[in-house]
């Protein structure tokens, strides 16, 4: 066990945990930020995607020892009132079916739009390819990302 200091959604958190504890389980078990989902544990499904200094990373592969000292944003901290352009676009397109993967999809999409505000179809597909949606909402996700990208330009 060791003490780590993390900044999550702008708030400092001090935790005494094993250094190899993945950020995913720090968020879920210890901070009760359960919007970040467990799907595979090996960075293959994207359900656990968070922003690490603004970039999309898989929190199941990020030990707390590496997360410490960096800025982490989770789905709960993406916006104050759930009104991030990507979240609004998701509601507008009524994207979710079961909804389980959608937090990860939204975190990947918002990170994409941060670095590329007007992505092409293939840029969207490439950036989102690591996020599995078992219900098959891919066409809606793409449409929502395009809406969000348009709203950011406007």
């Amino acid at each position: 066990m060791a003490e780590f200091s993390l900044t999550i959604n702008g708030k400092k958190q001090v935790l005494d945990l094993d250094p190899d504890t993945p950020l995913l389980w720090v968020l879920r078990d210890h901070l009760k930020l359960v919007g970040t989902k467990y799907g595979c544990g090996i960075a293959q499904c994207g359900a656990c995607t968070v922003h690490f200094n603004g970039s999309a990373v898989r929190s199941c592969q990020l030990p707390i020892s590496s997360a410490a000292g960096n800025e982490i944003t989770t789905i709960e901290g993406l916006s104050e009132n759930g009104d991030h352009p990507v979240q609004k676009a998701w509601l507008e397109h009524d994207v979710p079916q079961c909804g389980y993967c959608q937090a990860g999809q939204i975190m990947s999409a918002s990170a994409l739009l941060n670095r590329n505000p007007n992505p092409s179809d293939s840029e969207i597909e490439n950036a989102m390819n690591g996020n599995i949606c078992r219900c098959g909402t891919y066409t809606r996700i793409k449409a929502a990302i395009k809406s969000a990208s348009d709203s950011q330009i406007a």
């Binding site: 359960v34 759930g82 509601l91 909804g99 937090a103 939204i106």
Partner: peptide
């Protein structure tokens, strides 16, 4: 008539909804 998913807002903001979210 088309009506939005009643849980949509909770889904896109990461609120606890699923069995795995039970603590």
């Amino acid at each position: 008539t088309s009506r939005k998913n009643v849980d949509a807002k909770k889904i896109v903001t990461g609120q606890p909804l699923y069995g795995l979210d039970v603590y």
